[in-house]
């Protein structure tokens, strides 16, 4: 403390306090601010593809977790919409992105860790599809969630599943045509989800979510089911291959390292650039000016 006491009347003390305060503010904000990585790790088990769906299990889950809002007959209540004809893909999308089951039916749900395993979701989707009339089926060709270590008993099994998944993912992403994918994304998606997939504002406090963590399958499902305010892009207007091109474009863009430097500013663009220019750029330069012109003692 003596050290501070001795210097608190130094001509530069005020600036130092301001700089420290700014630094605290900045670092604090970085902690508070939504973290892009928060849900990075969320994955569910890759249920073995061969396992048959268990519709009775699906029914059990439906009764437990869905019926309170959507009704036992799936016709919907005040709290939840009618599920007639929504189909398996919609169920898979809503539950695998953790948006359903929702605790608060009045607000838009952000992406969360899914509550159920992939197998359970498939069971539920099959039940809903069978009971309340079919809609778009789950696009099996698009890779879904990656396998997770905790669902495998030994390491080698997990590694094998993971390798298999990655190979399928690579293969899916490698197919498709960049230009068509880019055009389709830019004309039909970017106006809400932004060029980088970071999402954007809608009216009434709703927002188009960021799609960084969305799996190819979830993107596909969103297009064919039109969750929330999102319009539907069915397979007749944008075909399966075209959707693959679109997903390839999105995933390639997201996977690309930022050539301009490690600080990509979350790819927000000009607003973030202006903010950094003012806060970091101008303050550093002004700090240099203060150093150059600071009052001096003969010995310091």
């Amino acid at each position: 403390m003596k050290w501070i006491t001795a210097r608190r009347r130094h001509p530069l003390a005020g600036y130092v306090v301001v700089i420290i305060a700014l630094a605290f503010f900045g670092v604090g904000y970085a902690f508070v601010a939504p973290n892009a990585d928060r849900a990075q790790a969320q994955t569910v088990a890759a249920g073995s593809e061969e396992a048959p769906v268990d519709i009775s299990n699906g029914k059990q889950i439906f009764v437990q977790s869905c019926a309170s809002c959507h009704g036992l007959d799936g016709k919907g209540t005040e709290n939840g919409p009618d599920l007639t004809g929504v189909g398996a893909a919609a169920v898979d999308f809503q539950v695998s992105t953790g948006r359903m089951p929702s605790m608060n039916p009045d607000v838009q749900m952000p992406r969360r860790d899914p509550v159920y395993t992939e197998q359970e979701i498939l069971d539920l989707a099959a039940y809903v599809d069978q009971e309340f009339g079919g809609g778009p089926a789950i696009p099996e060709q698009a890779p879904g969630l990656a396998p997770q270590r905790s669902d495998f008993e030994d390491e080698s099994e997990y590694k094998a599943a993971k390798e298999q998944y990655e190979a399928a993912y690579e293969q899916y992403i490698a197919g498709g045509d960049t230009e068509a994918g880019m055009k389709l994304y830019m004309t039909n998606c970017a106006h809400c989800h932004s060029w980088s997939g970071a999402g954007g504002a809608l009216t009434d406090g709703r927002w188009a979510p960021e799609i960084h963590e969305a799996t190819p399958r979830e993107i596909y499902e969103a297009m064919i089911t039109g969750p929330g305010a999102m319009p539907v892009f069915n397979d007749t207007t944008i075909t399966e291959e075209e959707k693959q091109s679109l997903i390839k474009f999105v995933k390639d863009l997201q996977a690309e390292p930022d050539a301009g430097g490690v600080f990509s500013l979350d790819r927000i663009g000009q607003v973030a650039e202006g903010f950094i220019g003012w806060t970091v750029g101008m303050s550093l330069i002004v700090a240099c000016a203060i150093w150059i012109t600071a009052k001096q003692r003969a010995h310091d």
Binding site: A180, K183, L184, T187, P231, V232, N234, T237
Partner: peptide, 22 residues
């Protein structure tokens, strides 16, 4: 045509309510 793929559009292609395309 659909922008980006230049495929002709039939009325029946846009069969889902809530659908949209450029």
């Amino acid at each position: 045509v659909v922008e980006g793929t230049d495929r002709l559009i039939r009325a029946s292609d846009l069969d889902e309510v809530g659908g949209m395309v450029t």
